[in-house]
Design a protein around this nucleic acid. Sequence first.
DNA 1: GCGGATCCAGAAAGCGCTCTCATGAACGGG
DNA 2: CCCGTTCATGAGAGCGCTTTCTGGATCCGC
Lengths: 349, 349
Amino acid sequence: MTDKPAAPRPTLEAVAARAGVSRATVSRVVNGGAGVTAPLASKVMRVVEELGYVPNRAARSLVTRRHDAVAVIIAEPETRVFTDPFFGRQLRGISKELTAHDSQLVLLLVEEKSDYARVGRYLAGGHVDGALVFSVHTQDELPAIVRASGLPTVFGGRPDPVEESTPYVDCDNRGGAREAVRHLLSLGRGQVAHITGPLDQTSAVDRLDGYRDVVPDADAALIAEGDFTPEGGERAMRELLERSPGLDAVFAANDLSASGALRVLREAGRRVPEDVAVIGFDDMVPLAGRTEPPLTTVRQDIEEMGRMMARLLLRSLERGPARGAAGPEPEADPASIVTPTVLVRRTSA
Amino acid sequence: MTDKPAAPRPTLEAVAARAGVSRATVSRVVNGGAGVTAPLASKVMRVVEELGYVPNRAARSLVTRRHDAVAVIIAEPETRVFTDPFFGRQLRGISKELTAHDSQLVLLLVEEKSDYARVGRYLAGGHVDGALVFSVHTQDELPAIVRASGLPTVFGGRPDPVEESTPYVDCDNRGGAREAVRHLLSLGRGQVAHITGPLDQTSAVDRLDGYRDVVPDADAALIAEGDFTPEGGERAMRELLERSPGLDAVFAANDLSASGALRVLREAGRRVPEDVAVIGFDDMVPLAGRTEPPLTTVRQDIEEMGRMMARLLLRSLERGPARGAAGPEPEADPASIVTPTVLVRRTSA
DNA sequence: GCGGATCCAGAAAGCGCTCTCATGAACGGG
DNA sequence: CCCGTTCATGAGAGCGCTTTCTGGATCCGC
C-alpha cells in the first residue's frame, strides 16, 4: 500500500557521506576531478555510480551563473516555418553541436509580434547563456530586442541591418544565384528571367543581387516578384510569359516558386528544359527531386549552417559572456560565416 | 573606459529594500499576491516594474522542485525527421500550449541508440517536469527508459506495447485508412492495392489494418511493403504492377510513397485517376497538392495533436507529479487521445 | 470593553551546489 | 633535523528564492 517515499534523488551531501569525504571533494570530482588524488577520486566515482547521483542543475547555476542552455528563437509568422524542413534541418545541426557541449536547447517559437515581449523578458531573465536567432526579415524588431538582453547571440541568416557585434551564419545566396544564372547562360540561353522571393527578406534580396551581378542589363520585364510559395511562383511565371514571351530560362529564388513556374510552363505548352530551362534554390527535400522534370537547383548545407551557429555561440560563451572592458586580450569577436552553395544538376536545366 | 559593472540583475532583496517591505512579501506578490493587502501589493508591483525585476528561475526551482519546463524528445534515426514537416508542425502545437502555461520547451533530438543513455540521465536528473516523447517504432527501448525516470509522460504516436500508465496522442490511422479504401471502392474500383509503410512502425501497421478491415479477403499480391519514402513507393508500385496488372486503385500508406507510385504509374502509361486511382496519407505540405495529378489523401491535424499532447501533460502535472498512494482522489489518469482524420479529395482519386 | 479568532507581514531556515579560505600533512632544502 | 613550501582536503559562506512559523495588529462577538 505504502509506496516508496518517492525515492529522493541523492544529493552531493549523500555521496559525500557515503564516500566518507567532504562535499567539496565530491564536487571537485564531479566537475572533472582536478586536484583530487586518484584513489580518492575513483572511490567517489564509484559511489556516484552506485547511488546514481546526478547534479542538480538549478543549484549549480544558482552559484555559477551559468545555465548550460541556449535559446533557439524561431520567428516566423505562419508561413514557411515547418512547412519547409529548413528549420528542422537547422535544428538538427544545432542540437548535435550543443549536445556535444552538454548544453540544452530551449526552443522559443514566435508567431506574432505580440510574442516579442515575452521573448525579451525570457532572455533578460537570464535563464540561458546565449541565443540563436533566426531572423530573415528586414527591419524586424527582434534583433534589437535580443541585443537588449545583452546575451551573446548568433543570427541565422543575415539580419538587416547587420551589427558588427552580433555575427551571423548564412549561405552564399548571392554567389549561389550567380552560379545558377551563369549556368543558364552557359547553356546558351539568352533571355534569363528571375522570379524573386519576398524582398523584405535578405535572402531574396541577395539572390536578386546575384542575378543582377551576372545580367546587369537585364530587362525589367524579365524580373517578377514572387513570395517563395508555389502559388507566387505560378503568378510570377504567368506574368513573365506575358511580358517576355521570348524567355528561354528562369531562375526562381527558391524551389517552391520553381515548382509553381514548372506547372505554368507545362500548361503553357513550353517544354522544360528544351524550350525553357529552370533552376531553383534550396534543394528542398523531398520536393526538388520529385518535380516534373526533376529540378536543377542550388543546394545549401542547412544542417552544417546550424552546427556553425552553435559553434560560434559556444565559442563566445567560453570566452566569458559579456566580459567587461577588463578582459586582458580583447580577442576579436567571432566573425560571421557565409557557407558555400553548390549547383545540383538534374533535368530542368 | 570603465564599462558599467555588468548591470547586476535586481534580486528579490533589492525590490524588497526599495519597496520597504520584506523579501517574503515581494515573493508573495510576484507569485500571485495572495494574502497581501492591495495597497502594499501595488506598491511592490510598481517597484518590480521600475527595476525590471525578473525572478531567478534557478533559485526558484531549487526550492519548489518545479522547473516549468518540459522535455520534447524526438527519436528518429536520420529519415523523416524534418525531411518531413511533421515534427515541425507538431512542435508548433506543443509550443503554443506550453507558452500559454508559461512553460519552457527543452528539445532533445535523438539520432542513435547511444543517445538513449544521455536522455535517460537527463530526465532522471530532474531538470524538467515532464516529457513528450515521439516514439513510433515497435519494440523501441525509449519508452522504457523514459518510464524509468518516473516523469509524467505523454507519447506522440501509439507506442508498442501500450502501457496503461502513459497516455498517447495519435491520429486515427486505422479509421483514416478505412475511409480511403472505402472511397476507392465507392469509385467502383474492384482491385485496390496497398503500399504499406515500414511495418515496425505502429502507424504503418494501423493503416494496413484499416485497409484489411475494408477488404479482408484481399489477395496478398495486392499488398507490397514500402518504407514511407518515394523510392520505396516506386519499388512497391513496380512490384504491384507486375504481380497484379489488373489493379485499378492504390492506397499508399503515406504521401511520399504515393508520389513514387504516381511516377511509376505514369511511366507505365497508366492514367491517374482514369486507369488507376491513388490515395495517400498525411496531406503533406507542400507535396500533396503539387504532385501530378494533385493527390487525394487522408489529412491529420498535426498541430492539434501536438497541442493535445502538451495539454495532456500539463494536466497531469497540475495534479502533482508522481503523487504517492496517499493522494485522496485517485482521479483517473488522463486517457489517450485518438484524433480524427479527414479525406481530402483532389484529382488522383 | 475584553478575550479569542483572524489575518497580514517579517524573520529565518533551508533548497543543493560551488568556491574561497584555512588547515594540516608531506616534502625538500639547508 | 628543522623550517618554509606545496598541495590535497575540509569547513563554511552564500547564490536567490520559497515557505513555515511567529508576532502583532485588527476584528468580531458577547
